[in-house]
Every structure is written in C-alpha cells, then in structure tokens.
Simulated assay, not measured.
Amino acid sequence: MTGAGRPVGELLRDWRRNRGMSQLDLSIEAGVSTRHLSFVETGRSRPSPDLILRLAEQLDMPLAERNTMLLAGGYAPAYPSHELSDPELAPVRAAVRQILDGHRPYPALLVDRHWHLVDANPAVDLFTADARPHLLTPPINVLRLSLHPDGMAPRILNLPEWRSHLLKRLRQQADATNDPVLRDLHDELRGYPGGDPAPVSDALSRVLVPLRYRHDDRELAFVSTTTLFGTPLDVTVSGLAVEAFFPADGATTEALRTLAPS
C-alpha cells in the first residue's frame, strides 16, 4: 500500500493534488466545508470513516488505497482482499474461466493490477513459445514479456507502434492509481529498444493500434479488448482484467483455427 505509515491528511492532500482538484472543488463534490477539509489535511481534525470514504469516492481512489487511508485514520479497512482461490471468489473464477474458454481459439489472458499473469487459455502459447525462461518464471509480467528483447518483441512487426501504445496505457494507469509499482514498470519498459512509431499507413491503424505478430512464416494481425468487473467491492477483483485478442483479418482467423490445439 503506497501510503502505509503516513497521516490521513497527508494522503488526502496528495490524492487531491494528483487529481488536479482544489480544496474548494473537493469540498463541493463531497458536501463538506472547505474549512473542515483544510483541518483534515493539516491534521487539526480527525475525519470519520464515512467522510474518508466519501472523499475517496470523489477522488476515484482504488479500493486498496481507500483501505490505506482508513488505516491511516485509525479505522478498519472497508474492502476485503481475498485470494482468487478463496471460496468467496468462486463466481469470479467461473466468470473468468467462461470468458477465457469461450474465446478459444483466440488468445485471452487474465492479469492483476500490476500486469502479472493470473490465468490464460491455451492460445496464449502462441505469444510465449519463443520467450526466454527468465521471462516465463512466475510472477510473469505480461508487459515485460511483450516488450523485452528476450520476449515477444523480436516477433512484433509493428513494435514501435505497439510499444508506444502499451507505454501510454501504462503511464495513464500509473497516473490514475498513483501506484509506484506501475511507475517503476513504466520506467523499466521505456528503457527497452523499440524505435519510434511510423506514420499510419493503413485503414486499420487509423482506427486503433493492432498487434502485428510473426509466427513461423505467417503475419498475424490482432485487435485487443479489455474486460473489467463492473462493480467490484473486493481489492483483488477490482484489479483484475481480461485481455482478449481477436483476429483483425481473415488470414489470421484461418491461421488460428489451424493452429488451435484439439
């Protein structure tokens, strides 16, 4: 937790500034006086758990950081954090498994909030077949696997564009969550070779950034989607995302059907 050991007012002030809000802005949104908010930030007033959660909601803080702020204020966490294997998350596991299995023969994987691989369907082996063992030792970070020279990078035909897309997405996620782990990962990945994006030259690339991937003597083209749980109240569930890849042309569709395991 990024704020462990820090006063609740200090955490609140940092998150408010991270969101680009003034004390007046936040006080209006949360329905609290600016004076009281100022007293909370300076430590002159102790906020109630209800006020902490109200402020955290207006600041769109991740559930884990809401728990951190509650602990800093001397209160118990409000949101549980189960292991994915716990009985309470059986419906979550079932939903994810249905998505992963239903997406075959196309690749789909489940990642946590730090982009560690949690689960995948067999079609993902297409992306990992030639990666070096050190990138496939758990915990496997899928962004590192994608952009590392010992991972997928040598087979990504539009590496500059794909790299730029992933780095932009990761930077936005790090800014939104204020997560130092994601910031460190962004700094690491930014140091990998990749080149500068070329001008857009085809119709598909004018709409979104495809993944163009070489497998044996074939060029495969994918578009990707991200699926999140819509109303999470558990820290673990709130960080889960299913990354699904769809064929972007008929040749890729046919190739994936041919390559699919029986």
Rank of each mutant, 00 (worst) to 15 (best):
P199I: 09
L233M: 13
L159F: 03
L208E: 04
H103P: 12
I99A: 09
P210M: 12
H148R: 07
I52R: 05
H148I: 11
A129N: 00
W162V: 03
G74H: 07
Y79Q: 02
P7K: 05
P160K: 15
P138H: 10
R6L: 13
Y79R: 00
H36R: 07
R218E: 10
E57D: 12
M21Q: 03
P197A: 11
L228P: 07
Q98N: 13
S81R: 13
D150I: 15
R19G: 10
H215A: 04
A198V: 11
R169M: 13
R54E: 06
E243R: 11
H36T: 08
L11P: 02
G151I: 03
P199E: 02
I28R: 15
A108F: 03
L135Q: 08
A221I: 14
P7G: 06
A153W: 14
V8R: 08
P138A: 14
T128D: 06
W162P: 00
P107T: 12
A260P: 00
P62R: 00
N18M: 03
R212A: 01
S85K: 08
P154F: 04
Q173S: 12
G74I: 06
E10A: 14
G191L: 13
Y106P: 08
V209Q: 08
A260N: 05
V207S: 02
L233F: 11
R144I: 01
Y75L: 04
R13T: 14
W115R: 00
D217R: 04
Q98L: 15
G151P: 07
V242N: 02
N141Q: 01
D86M: 03
L170W: 14
A4N: 06
I28N: 10
H82S: 03
G9F: 07
R35K: 07
P160W: 14
D249T: 01
L59T: 05
E243A: 14
H134Y: 06
V200M: 07
E65P: 01
G250V: 07
M1Y: 06
D101E: 15
G102V: 05
A108N: 13
E10P: 11
M21P: 01
A248R: 01
P105K: 12
L37H: 09
R171K: 12
